[in-house]
Design a protein around this nucleic acid. Sequence first.
DNA 1: GCCTAGGTCCCGTAC
DNA 2: GTACGGGGCCTAGGC
Lengths: 265, 265
Amino acid sequence: MVEGSVSMNHPQVKVDPTFQEVESIVSDACSRGCFTVLVADCRVDYHGRSSSKMGWGERVVLLKPDGSVLIHRRTGFEAANWQPPGCCITFSQREGELVIRADRRKPRETLEVICREVALVSSVLLKDDASLDMLISEQDLYSVLRANPDLIEPGFRISSEQKGLGGGKADLTGLDRSGRYTVVEVKRVAADTDAVKQLYRYISQMRETSPDLRGILLAPNIRPAAKRLAKSLSVDYRTVDVAQCAAVFSKNSSKGLDRLDRHFT
Amino acid sequence: MVEGSVSMNHPQVKVDPTFQEVESIVSDACSRGCFTVLVADCRVDYHGRSSSKMGWGERVVLLKPDGSVLIHRRTGFEAANWQPPGCCITFSQREGELVIRADRRKPRETLEVICREVALVSSVLLKDDASLDMLISEQDLYSVLRANPDLIEPGFRISSEQKGLGGGKADLTGLDRSGRYTVVEVKRVAADTDAVKQLYRYISQMRETSPDLRGILLAPNIRPAAKRLAKSLSVDYRTVDVAQCAAVFSKNSSKGLDRLDRHFT
DNA sequence: GCCTAGGTCCCGTAC
DNA sequence: GTACGGGGCCTAGGC
């Protein structure tokens, strides 16, 4: 595709629209499943699980065809106000102001964007069928480890994955080189104290039936507080190179996972 | 202010811009602290704490002057890809594609938006000094409870708020009707097992100096698993009517909080 | 800097 | 439907 070719749907754009023009563009956009961007001087009221009020100011308002609404301010990652998908968006004018109202049913929540001026309205039908592929999720890590238990510990043999236990599930269980029954908690990110406690809870429960039980916390790294706790609870900690696993995973994901020894040894 | 008056900063808008025009508009926008909206046919690569790839599709890209980047798809509340504030945004062209790169230092993360076509670019200097006032936060709940400790339990006397402990802080401490020292954990939403564990951690720490110690979990409702855990740890659970507190709070916020007995009894 | 706790968290999944 | 755990969660506040 060459720059300048017009293959995308042309966005509908109006600078300094009247409220009538905004309403007409946006309701047309909604009915055609378009994505709408507004730049407006507005104030915002929210009532629901909490309540908020935001005074007059200029913001960017996104209206999505699935009923989600996002009000972004000049800075900050998070939307200042919002409504998740599924809510009902209506327009009205009162006292020279354009009111965009987004209602949610469960839980009952209302969002009102009161505009006294709209600087820009644009709507466009977005063509987008691509998938967002997250590489190396925790599940993916299990896959790699299942195919390569040596990455847990040399000689390790996995006996179950995601074994259900009372109040949660152990990530992996198996036998270490010496044949000792072992519970493995896998974390894709730095292990925190919660991870240690979680693993310890599994161990405690399972010790009722198997008193001689090891616990291994497997993570790319561990928080200091978690390390101390693990030590005091006699839970072992081992590192796993997630980047390496990710590389292996993507290399194998197309043709199914099998033993990866040849990649590392 | 009257509809049609032009008091907002005029947004700069270009439909079907060339990549040169995009770069020039956006770099100008960045230097002037403008908010930029792009509608583009793009693919996105992310590498950092995790990794992701998203194939070609049309999306709305927000570039904020604080260095945050948001890539929104046609549907869904959440941005498909993003970069939080503080990252460094650079542009380049390669092989007929416009590459927007956003780099973060800590943690090291990179985001690349590769555009093969831009349908719209718009930048605007947003004037916005308003504050976002959240009503009835957990802090506000404390205020109401401080003025009305009977809402915790009849006869309750608060002795401290946000008492710092080694790692974490107890929401409220005080004496119950019988003079027993008590730690109260306040939740604005349904109490989950984490809330119980949190409270129990405080209790355990404080029992080293005050062995006879009660714990109360105060929340509008409690999850079943949390209720079971609380019971097994001998942590009491009591409900608080957040809507009532909110009503009281807003009624009193203008003239300062005092005893609210007269509102309810 | 790390850690802890909160959020209108949102979101998927199991039950 | 509700409950529960995860997130590239993000963000604010302490130490």
